[in-house]
Write a protein that binds this DNA or RNA. Sequence first.
DNA 1: GCCGTTTTCGGCCCGACTGTTTTCAGTCG
Length: 572
Amino acid sequence: MIQNSEIADYFTKVADFLEIEGANPFRVRAYRNAVRTITGLAHSIAELIAAESDLTQLSGIGKELNEKIREIVRTGRLAKLEELENRLPPGLHQVLKIPGLGPRKVKALYHTLKIQGLEDLKKAAREGRVRTIEGFGQKTEEKILKDIQRLIHSEKRTPWFTAEAIARTLTEYLKQDQLLADITVAGSFRRRKETVGDLDILISCRNAPAVMNSFTACEGVERVISQGDTRSSIVLRSGLQVDLRVVPRESYGAALHYFTGSQAHNIAIRRIGQQKGLKINEYGVFSGSRRTGGQTEEEVYASIDLPYIEPELREDRGEIQAARERRLPHLVASTDIRGDLHCHTTDSDGRNSLDEMAKAAAARGYAYLAITNHTHHLKIARGLSPAAVKKLIAEIDRRNARLQEVVVLKSMEVDILSDGRLDLPDHILSELDFTVCSIHSDFQLDRDRQTERILRAMDNPRFNILGHPTGRLLNQRPAYAVDLERLITAAAERGCFLELNAHPDRLDLDDVHCRLAKETGVKVAISTDAHSVDHLDYMRLGVAQARRGWLEPSDVLNTHTLAQLQKLFRRS
DNA sequence: GCCGTTTTCGGCCCGACTGTTTTCAGTCG
């Protein structure tokens, strides 16, 4: 069955080629908007079609694109794309990926030098032919050569957690300037996306040129892309691009809104402003030439009669409509979390003892902490045998009887075996308070078999939480093929829950499926999977991801009291 | 190619910076 991402790829290519051909830019945008809608969808388009859903209900999908989606799903081909690839070299769209080369320049490269793709371009640049084209010069040619290498080497985005460390260092450095008034890291970082493409730092200050100089000279700069009075860009040796923007204090809110994005959210907000006769830009809200607001983000939203929208929601995925109808979610916060339902100790592959983990949980003000060590199938993590589990259960009982500062829940991270059985006998499972059940083997099973495997595991009445539901590791390992929609539906039917694993490299469930779980009535456990006391702090990453998924406290399992939890874990 | 709390036609976000220019187009976010 064709994946949403494949459909999106078809449309991205069509948009690229249309752009190179010089088509109506709004038509190009229509394709790109559709790509955004499709990739942000939790449901499989192919299945929506099979269920005879009306795709034109999706934003940005009209009559034409609906037809084209159906064509792709039905035939695996798109005549429109093939037609474009007949007129233009199929590899030409790759050239658009080079920074600084937009559709016009790519078109010029094709027409004058017959460039068909990245290989041709590399050769032409080496031979000094690129600089001979009007509008191109030596600098452009040198930059192309560098960027082709970079493009071949990596296209990776930076995990949020990694970006945070860099952002903290940079903001501390910039704050040394005495005249700096405000500083915020905006962009996708502020929206808490699981990975960020670059960092956007916004400041207001009274000596912009000096700050710009110290910014472009900061430690770790590989090259300076641009430097101006209000905007400068650098690339760090890590490959991360950082943009610094300076705005006047009275514009700070408008600028913060603008640079936080997302672009789609901004466009939607500006359009509403336009309809009300207002111009909204990064300098404020204007009625004619008169400034009517923009010192705070609240003012920007208020200018178009909307309440404040949290950055995590600003993706143009219905938040504006919800704001208009005054039904924005009251997002879960770290302070709502009462405990952690997934962590390891030295009994399996953790670095701290049960006692140390419990004390650390108590220090965080938690009411409960579940110890979920691996089971014996996972030998590499020193998984526990049934006998060892029994011993651990007894130890936890003794501890709970003796100490009251935090309740230690008896649990295990139980391996889901290839055939869907659980890796502990039922009589042991029934002695646990609940289970986290996870896949750690046979990632390569096809989608149907992997889904069936997990569904079978869920059939066991001792199954409570599905751990890291897709197994993906950001930038390292893709998700295993699995039908998450079916799993979420099945979880709802059986009274099971899904984990949002808060580990910075996992963040598994993603935002889109958190929201689907919420809509399906499946509560999500935000768990750190801590292998040491420090890892308990990953909770804030999971909470951020949950907020992007529109989750409210009641949608999250571990905001509930211990008594409520015990009830929720009792299936049937 | 999409869309409609004026609209089924006529709009569709907008400002900064760079390189290659002699006044600005192209690209980016």
